[in-house]
Amino acid sequence: MSAITSSPTRPIRTASAAPSFLGGIARFARREFRDAIASKWFLLYTLAFTTLAVGVSFLSLSGVGSHGFAGFGRTAAGLLNLIMLVVPLMALTAGAGSIAGERERGTLLYLLAQPVSRMQVLLGKYFGLAAALLCSLCVGFGISGGVLAWRAGGVGIGSYAMLIGFTALLAIAMLSVGVLISVCSRRSSVATGIALFAWLTLVFVSDLGLMASSLLFKLRVQEIFGLAAVNPLQSFKMAVIVNLNASLDVLGPVGSYASQTLGDGLPWVLGASLAAWTAVPLALAVVIFVRRSSV
């Protein structure tokens, strides 16, 4: 081993040796993105989502002409329930493994010993994972869209594009929740367990809970709508249905109330709910991680 060259007389300017705030985030994001797309879990999720999306597209195409929807619009409706199951699971588990995994492997300490801040590390990991998630979804939507365009032309392509947009919002919102869980957990297995519990709660328990509480407490329609809009999955579902149908009448009195009261502002209210589910857990995660007294 030869000596490492060093130049003792050359002054080190601290500002030049530490990356800028955005530069540090970008470097971590790039690394996280590369690691994520190379991971087996991501490949598995992408493959599963793509296969199911293409399957739904073929099923939708089989009924073209006999029902109200056709092509992209019909597929968007068919994909809705699939997305509500798969996308939160992907995003929550990916987020849950982010910080807790690094902490458990002992790599977090080494990363924090570099000339970067905790906020740069966390945001970099978040944006890298978000980019990887969106890429994974784009593969599924892209192949499914390709099949639809080939077989049924561009009918309802607008609805399909809106579905992709709202799915992206749902994914990054669930990723924020996953990252918050990760920041609060010391072990990756615990974080994944909590993420799965959160997924079950959001997907199944909250629906049943809302139904039960509306019966038990005789909730008014505006209260039921308010509670439903607080759940990011319900917000996503309502936003997609509004986009497909132009109203929520298919959801009964609550849907009619929302359509009549909020009118054109309804998609914005539902979008804002998803945006809040992105911003608030991420902000909390940043505050907790930055203020943490240990690694």
Binding site: T14, A17, G106, T107, A113, P115, V116, S117
Partner: peptide, 27 residues
Amino acid sequence: VNVRRRGRHARALIGYVPQELAFHDDA
């Protein structure tokens, strides 16, 4: 440079060698 206030600038002046390198095994 105060480490608490300007941590990343202070760490730019430090080369750190841990007891055992902890980095992603797949990298």
